[in-house]
Design a protein around this nucleic acid. Structure first.
Lengths: 136, 136
DNA sequence: TCAATTGTAATAAAATTTGTTACAATATAA
DNA sequence: TTATATTGTAACAAATTTTATTACAATTGA
């Protein structure tokens, strides 16, 4: 995760969690993060796909949570945005003639997925509700 | 960690662990990983800085472990090569006028370092010795 | 002295991430 | 029903990170 997607997602969701039923527009969110409204809408799109958010077009449009913040865990958010494993990428095309090159990715698969799972399980205990509460 | 540094480092160290006292050259290592010898030497340089490896120049030169593989944990390796936090980068320059923008990085600092520590602690239980054993 | 090797720098190429611009579709309010 | 504000998305551009390549001085052993 050499990117800001988790930071951005949790920032957006915190703003929505603390905005109740109001429709919050992407320009206002972008102002808080200090980024571009189109970037925010891209991330909102992913958060909609994950079921956390609904959007409404048109004048007075915007976004709001699609479920109580108590029912969104930081694990859910992480899984929605993560695009690499915690320990990084593997070297594909290792040399099959070498005992290590031949077998290492099979061994790493286990280690890498165990490590991901560890992180996910720990984030499961944390809710957006409790995170967002800190800013009120 | 959207890179192959951990994979590469553990691959190199596994080869060295299974090569005992022999001086292993970067060309041979590169052949197993299927990458460039100069890349391997760059990573070896980092592994030397971390104290895991020693190198010798000149004809018959190469690299070998600088301590028993039982005394190198996967946590040590991870720490030596990691360059981002598990949960990624933060948005700096968030808006200080916004209650969330103002405070979020302080809250994320804790979460991010806790998550890193979780991963490191879990890798502490795993040694290079046990990993390398699988390939003999 | 010759040959092989490291260590490192400089550079280039490729991939990923972030930012920008534009606009059709849509929804509200006057 | 018209004007206005907004999303959702695509296309593109810029910036950053990652990986690969080339080169060569310094070193070591034979």
């Amino acid at each position: 995760m050499n990117n800001t997607r988790f930071s951005t997602a949790i920032h957006i969701l915190t703003l929505l969690a603390d905005s109740g039923e109001n429709w919050v527009n992407s320009d206002w969110i972008a102002g808080s993060i200090n980024t571009n409204a189109a970037m925010v809408r891209k991330e909102l799109s992913a958060l909609q796909d994950a079921g956390f958010v609904i959007g409404r077009k048109g004048k007075e449009g915007g976004s709001r949570l699609n479920k109580p913040s108590s029912q969104i865990s930081l694990a859910d958010i992480y899984v929605a945005v993560k695009n690499t494993e915690v320990l990084g990428k593997k070297n594909l095309n290792t040399n099959p003639q070498c005992p290590v090159g031949k077998q290492i990715n099979k061994e790493l698969d286990q280690l890498y997925s165990d490590t991901d799972q560890l992180v996910i399980n720990s984030l499961k205990g944390l809710t957006l509700e409790n995170f967002a509460k800190k800013f009120r």
